[in-house]
Design a binder for these strands. Structure first.
Length: 521
DNA sequence: TGACCAAGCGCC
DNA sequence: AAAGGGCGCTTGGTCA
């Protein structure tokens, strides 16, 4: 049963609205009945419940659902807030999308509970009109669970040892400099670059670098590191070292830690569905781009451990299950998908891998082109599945994930471009996007389902603390390690059943219990 | 001065 | 890990 929640009101759908003074307390009491809470936007309501110590098991996020519905209905890009949805429902002027900044001076009055209930009812009706309402309902549930989880991840935070972070930075860069200065090791490398050219060059400036290399008789198109590596010049070594360390300093250095690490926790801000494929994005903190070298500062609390679980070869498995390709599904029933593939393929493991990846991602390398016909012959249904997606893209049509997330339509610019002289290129690019979309979006759905199930199976006080596309991290007391690892395995199986029902495809998780993130794999 | 873009590279 | 898709984020540089 749905129960609508706004700032000061609780409204059980079909019942009567009840004003409440203490929202967290009221929600906490009603949670015993396990309703599906419906609210305009999880980001506006749930954080304060969490701060009050209240967690809920499930919800319906109106804004996220509206975004999914609009895309599915071919109205991608319209404002998706509950307020906008309500205005559309009543033929009123639709307000522009508001940035989500709580307490903004000009923030509009929140919708009242009755209006939210109206939008909810309308959404449930619209879902029934879609090609596969059952799957879409699952998508809505998973996306909404994602919203809960994202808020909880931010609330709980990933363990982050500032002392270890500082030690790592000091080791690599030198001691923390006064604000605005380069750390000593960076400055030394910058000086070495200048010395190699015989005059001052700012290694952060592409223009200066290209000019300096030109003066030294080296023509460069870009200063990308893979291009620099092919050049023989005394400035290259210090420059490459500089680039790597400078990035660490400016992206995840002391200033970053001041802003994002508090009380021994890194609290990222996740954006659920922030990527068109349904993958999450982050706004601030760069949680999805933390360099691997930083993993050694992610350390479990005393007496606790980190359970790090990574879905192995998720995307080819997802394709096998989606396409219903018997041969591929059989290979995906093995732990090492690629050796199984090679057996069925009658070739080398590496070749099987390249063929698989090229089929999924539209690879164009020489090896890939040679191997694709084998792929097509051995796994015709899987091959056809991604080919169909690519063809749809090339023709400007939409594609959908397994649960019904719809790709954005091509832009007006693309439509002009595709009928012009460079049209073939634009069409192929779009084809690669839609080919990738169906696989990546479904993999994202599987990952959401995994987390939603796992969240419900975690014992107190274990907490999900990190999520990165196909990898999750749980922080729990040492004596819960076995239980949590088992929960991960069971959740993967449950997620697979939720999405695909009975399938020979397995979705193994590589799961380890470690004191420190760097110790995983 | 601030707004905006491109380059470059981290993650999956 | 592949390799291709897409993201965030910082810096330098340009323009109004």
């Amino acid at each position: 049963m749905h129960v609508v929640v706004t700032d000061g009101t609780i409204l059980p759908v079909g019942g009567s609205a009840r004003p409440v003074d203490d929202l967290a307390r009221a929600v906490g009491e009603l949670e015993a009945e396990r309703p599906r809470w419906a609210w305009a936007d999880t980001r506006e309501t749930y954080p304060e419940l969490l701060r009050a110590g209240v967690r809920v098991s499930r919800c319906h996020d109106v804004a996220l659902t509206e975004g999914l519905l609009l895309a599915a209905e071919g109205r991608y890009g319209q404002p998706r807030s509950a307020r906008a949805a309500h205005a559309r429902l009543h033929g009123l002027p639709v307000p522009d999308e508001q940035p989500n900044v709580p307490g903004t001076l000009f923030a509009p009055e929140p919708l009242d509970a009755r209006a939210v209930a109206e939008v909810l009812a309308d959404q449930l009706r619209r879902i029934e009109l879609l090609p596969d309402p059952g799957r879409f309902r699952l998508l809505v549930a998973a996306e909404s669970a994602g919203a809960l989880i994202a808020a909880e991840l931010s609330h709980d935070g990933m363990p982050w040892r500032r002392d270890e972070h500082d030690a790592l930075l000091t080791e690599l860069l030198g001691p923390r400099p006064v604000h605005g200065m380069r750390p000593v090791k960076l400055q030394t490398l910058a000086d070495e670059v200048s010395a190699a050219f015989g005059h001052p060059v700012n290694p952060d400036s592409v223009q200066q670098l290209v000019k300096a290399f030109k003066g030294a008789g080296v023509a460069l198109r870009t200063t990308r590191s893979w291009e620099l590596k092919r050049i023989d010049h005394p400035a290259i070594a210090p420059l490459l070292a500089y680039k790597e360390l400078a990035r660490l300093h400016s992206f995840h250095g002391w200033v970053w830690a001041d802003q994002w690490v508090r009380d021994g926790r890194f609290r990222a801000e996740y954006v659920v569905g922030g990527v068109v494929s349904g993958r999450w994005a982050t706004s601030g903190g760069g949680a999805l781009q933390i360099p691997k070298v930083m993993r050694r500062v992610v350390v479990a609390d005393e007496g606790w451990t980190l359970i790090v679980a990574d879905a192995a070869q998720l995307e080819p498995r997802v394709l096998a299950a989606m396409a219903g390709d018997v041969g591929l599904a059989k290979a995906a029933g093995e732990i090492d998908l690629y050796s199984a593939l090679a057996k069925s393929f009658g070739g080398e493991r590496d070749n099987a891998k390249i063929a698989m990846l090229s089929a999924m991602y539209g690879g164009t390398s020489g090896d890939a082109l040679k191997l694709l016909p084998v792929m097509r012959q051995r796994f015709p249904k899987a091959y056809q599945f991604v080919e169909d997606a690519a063809k749809a893209g090339e023709e400007g049509r939409l594609v959908r994930s397994w649960l019904g997330r719809t790709s954005p339509p091509p832009s007006e610019r693309w439509k002009t471009l595709v009928s012009g002289p460079e049209g073939g290129r634009a069409a192929r690019d779009r084809g690669r996007f839609t080919r990738n979309f169906v696989v990546q979006a479904t993999a994202a759905e599987w990952a959401l389902a995994l987390m939603a199930v796992l969240r419900g199976r975690l014992p107190e006080p274990a907490r999900l603390v990190f999520f990165q596309h196909d990898e999750v991290m749980v922080h729990c007391p040492l004596d819960q390690a076995e239980q949590v690892m088992a929960a991960v395995t069971e959740s993967a199986a449950q997620a697979s059943r939720l999405l695909f029902g009975q399938t020979p495809v397995r979705f193994p998780m590589e799961t380890v219990a470690v004191p420190c993130y760097a110790d995983a794999k």
